[in-house]
Simulated scan of single mutants.
Amino acid sequence: MSSTPRCPSCRRFVYLDTLVCPECGTEMGMQVIDRVFVALRDGRATGDDGTWFACSEREWGCNWLVRDDAPAGRCISCRLTRTRPDQDDTIALEKLAKVEEAKRRLLLQVGDLGLPIVPWYTTPGGLGFDLLSSRSDGRKVIIGHANGIITIDLAESLDDVREAVRVKLGEPYRTILGHLRHEIGHYYQNVLIQDDETWARCRDLFGDERASYQEALKRHYAVGAPESWQDSFISEYATMHPWEDFAETFAHYLHIVGTLQTAAAIGIRLDAGVSTLRDIDVVPRDDYRDEPVGRVLADWAALSQGFNRVNRSMGLGDLYPFTITQPVQRKLAFLHEIITRTPLTTDEQVALALAPGEESA
């Protein structure tokens, strides 16, 4: 989102998941082409760009809108969900609502970055989500990605479940949005890298992804990360296999530019004459497409220090508990290049909102 979302009636700041303005009671929905909230009356809004209807999943917290000429009553985000809990599994569906909220945030971000979104139901290997709960029927749900489909365990929307896993694995950070950003990194590795030269550069930075994944998995959980892994990797899990290194670094790129975009939207800046964190002004941007990666990382170095201090003042852990070393900076620079060279076209923005084509049965 390149601007701060506001209520269309009273102009109060609202969060991306808002259904009803807490100040004036206006029922609202997000028109995702222009990234603005509009007021709804009887579940619809009419303007110069046509009539928009509330997504049919609004009862489960979806506040996106669907244009009257769209091929389905569900918004693009909801249609990208290939598999979900049964309708009578209301406990799992309550968890689904929280995960869908994070997914909508993810899709807004990749849309703002200009990354193509090709739905699973229009193209083999297209993007889709299986959102299942390991708490339903005793099924085993493994978070991961395969051939465009991202699988998320809804049980991790529960703080106690997710925190237990985080502590067990010794991770400094674990969230549903983090899972989604990581897994979509797997998807975009094959979407954004198409030529031999770029693959060679990718392998030089991250390693050869053609190495056995199963052997790497066994080795990682048997002996753990190599010594001094912090010198070259953003996380311990990134050391497991080149695929995971790429996906972890991709997730961090989204963490960084997404948080900088939010800082820009709400007007956060560091003035050199006041701040002790930098000798020059730091003014985060809502779009870094035309900026070198050095600007991204310099802004983030200063802002993340400030955010960490704020968290500590509340007795919390660091907002961003990671160190970006020179090797990681080079990996982030590669990602910045392949992401920003993707043309941002009107067609892609419209595809994000409308996604032409019917869902498969």
Results as ranks from 00 to 15, higher is better:
Met240Cys: 11
Asn63Ile: 14
Asp34Glu: 15
Thr18Cys: 15
Trp199Arg: 13
Arg139His: 05
Tyr15Trp: 05
Gln261Asp: 04
Leu80Gly: 00
Gln194Thr: 14
Tyr121Ile: 13
Leu154Pro: 00
Gln326Trp: 08
Leu169Tyr: 05
Gly61Tyr: 02
Ala355Ser: 15
Gly43Met: 04
Asp89Trp: 08
Lys140Trp: 01
Leu40Ile: 01
His241Gln: 04
Glu197Lys: 15
Lys95Glu: 15
Ala301Ser: 12
Arg84Lys: 15
Leu180Phe: 02
Asp318Ala: 15
Gly47Ala: 08
Ala211Gly: 07
Gln326Ser: 03
Leu352Trp: 05
Leu316Trp: 12
Thr239Trp: 06
Gly29Leu: 01
Pro172Gln: 10
Asp347Phe: 05
Asp112Leu: 13
Arg219Thr: 10
Tyr320Ile: 07
Arg278Cys: 02
Ile142Glu: 07
Gln87Asp: 15
Gln31Lys: 14
Arg105Phe: 05
Val165Pro: 00
Asp245Met: 01
Ala222Trp: 02
Gly207Cys: 11
Trp52Tyr: 15
Asp42Glu: 10
Val293Gln: 04
Glu27Leu: 06
Thr249Leu: 09
Leu127Met: 14
Glu215Met: 10
Val99Lys: 08
Arg201Lys: 12
Asp271Gly: 02
Cys21Ile: 04
Ile76Cys: 09
Gly224Glu: 06
Lys331His: 04
Pro356Phe: 06
Pro284Gly: 11
Phe246Ser: 01
Arg330Ala: 12
Ala102Gly: 03
Val257Trp: 02
Asp290Lys: 12
Cys55Gln: 07
Thr151Lys: 15
Gln329Thr: 11
Ala225His: 01
Pro172Asp: 09
Leu132His: 03
Glu183Phe: 01
Arg166Val: 00
Glu227Ser: 11
Thr4Trp: 10
Trp52Arg: 13
Arg104Val: 04
Ala251Pro: 00
Gln31His: 10
Leu169Trp: 03
Ala39Trp: 03
Gly73Met: 05
Glu100Lys: 15
Gly148Val: 06
Ser77Gly: 14
Val36Phe: 03
Ile117Met: 15
Ile268Phe: 14
Arg104Thr: 06
Ala97Gln: 03
Trp243Phe: 14
Asp48Thr: 10
Tyr288Ile: 09
